[in-house]
Design a protein around this nucleic acid. Structure first.
Lengths: 137, 137
DNA sequence: CTAGTTCCTGTAGTGGCTACAGGAGCAAGC
DNA sequence: GCTTGCTCCTGTAGCCACTACAGGAACTAG
């Protein structure tokens, strides 16, 4: 059994975040020492690490909760996981696309920006009325 | 002079967001009608539109405030804008890179995921101990 | 036994909005 | 002038996923 500090080290999840996950019911409450300190089993630490890895992959907590409940079942229905992962991939691709368009927009806006010029053409363009929108969204 | 609804339409900024910007001191307080309703001049609406466009480009509010104070000056020091825009570009590029690596990781994880399989290899891998980290951060 | 570290709870803050509730103002039609 | 229905007002709370305290209790090494 490990204290929260060790669990944090081993899982890579910040101590405050571990307590937050517990408060929110994302991970189960661990046992306690006589003095009230949390004590984590290796399995509970594995669960924390799992949550962190999913967060690193960009999954929102709500999806991770679904994953966790799926790992509880004997049948870890792979189909459901696949669908969630693919939706997430679509979102990642959409974000990449938006950011790429953003980069282009910013590059063309700032390209006229030259040190020493008084009235900045970038700010001017953004302030002007008739600027085509090309909203990234 | 325009009501907040018209200002919202013309600037593309949500009404609640306009009031939020005012509360936070991001845009100046507009005049009021006899009954206390906000009244916006075309200039004030242009400022709101400017903020939205900068937000669309992904700039944080803090940077936009700098931009706004620069546009107040006669000399819209272009050099400063250029630096901020370039830093922002670097951040966008970093985000694109992270997301691209995320996509690769997710693709390879979910590639073994096949409908009908009981124990999902993706969840298994994420739960396992010795999974190489490759943290995207 | 003491000093230092880690742990506890509870609350508040982050960014950038968004969503109410409960009431007041205002414009158009009769 | 009055009603109807829309828009507007303030104030507060919620969203996401944490993070950062404060003030105190429990452990651990020497």
């Amino acid at each position: 059994m490990f204290t929260i500090g060790k669990a944090s080290e081993q899982s890579g999840v910040n101590i405050e975040t571990i307590r937050y996950y517990e408060r929110e019911g994302i991970v189960p409450r661990p046992g306690r020492s006589a003095g009230g300190h949390r004590l984590y089993s290796p399995d509970e630490i594995a669960k924390l690490r799992f949550v962190r890895r999913c967060r690193d992959l960009g999954f929102p907590i709500s999806i991770i909760q679904t994953f966790l409940s799926l790992t509880e079942q004997d049948d870890r229905s792979c189909g459901e996981v696949k669908v969630l992962a693919e939706n997430h991939l679509d979102e990642i691709n959409a974000k990449i696309e938006i950011l790429t368009r953003l980069r282009e927009a910013l590059l063309s806006l700032s390209s006229n920006c030259d040190d020493g010029i008084a009235a900045c053409p970038m700010l001017d363009t953004l302030m002007k009325d008739g600027f085509a929108e090309n909203r990234a969204e």
